[in-house]
Design a protein around this nucleic acid. Sequence first.
DNA 1: ATCCTGACGCGCC
DNA 2: AGGCGCGCCAGGA
Length: 116
Amino acid sequence: MAKRTKAPADPFSHRVLAVVRRIPPGRVASYGEVAKLAGRPRAARAVGNIMKTCGRPDVPCHRVIAAGGRLGGYGGSEMLKRSLLVAEGIVVSGSRVRELNRVRWTVGKVRSTKSE
DNA sequence: ATCCTGACGCGCC
DNA sequence: AGGCGCGCCAGGA
């Protein structure tokens, strides 16, 4: 045996997709946050690339935004991303998410949609 | 294997 | 406040 079947291959990309998939509706996570949770706090850029190559409908890539609440990009259709976020109840102003502190997805922080 | 690009992040001008 | 540059990581040619 001694064969671990196969090398870890891409635990990173796989991890990123898993994290994004865990993002609940009405919540958003930044590329850097996802990257950090995936095990690469400096791979925010790579995360963005993976989002593009994800090709998984179970991965709400539109819920992944840039740092500071910026929309980031969306294949050139960031207006679509903005609409999707707003449609989920997220307040977006221009190219900036408002109340980021409220929509920011945090692990272990299950805050109801109730305004506090 | 090497080079370049790319849905980023942060600092600086 | 907005724009520019450098750094970091992964995937594709």
